[in-house]
């Protein structure tokens, strides 16, 4: 009888303890929401049924990347040509002064 009572008590303690353990808050070592999200590239929003083709988006991104870079290189070229033109006009103006002095 004593053994039966002890067994019942043990079973009851297990049944009570399990749900209690499940309700415990996450420990401090557990990853935060940010870390958990960052560990995987999971979609977080957007319609489930829509299938967005990745190819055109990828091509668009790389076109933008190299298009903007090329555009900036052209701008640098324009600045360089402007500097050359300024140097030439300054040189001609000073040459004219030099000729007038002579």
């Amino acid at each position: 009888m004593k053994a039966l009572l002890l067994s019942a008590l043990l079973l009851a303690s297990i049944l009570v303890a399990r749900p209690a353990a499940a309700e415990e808050p996450a420990s401090e070592d557990a990853p935060s929401a940010v870390e958990e999200r960052s560990a995987a590239f999971r979609a977080v929003s957007g319609p489930e049924t829509e299938s967005v083709p990745g190819g055109p988006l990828l091509i668009g991104a790389y076109l933008a990347l190299w298009g903007l870079t090329l555009g900036y290189l052209l701008r640098l070229g324009k600045i360089a040509r402007g500097i050359e033109a300024d140097v030439e006009s300054l040189r001609q103006a000073l040459q004219k002064v030099d000729d007038d002095v002579r």
Partner: peptide
């Protein structure tokens, strides 16, 4: 220049990942 690249390429990725270009 690189901020513009980030702000253009990011939304193109986001369209697929998040379903929207910008949030």
């Amino acid at each position: 220049l690189f901020c513009a690249i980030v702000l253009v390429t990011g939304p193109l990725w986001a369209r697929k990942a998040w379903g929207v270009y910008w949030t």
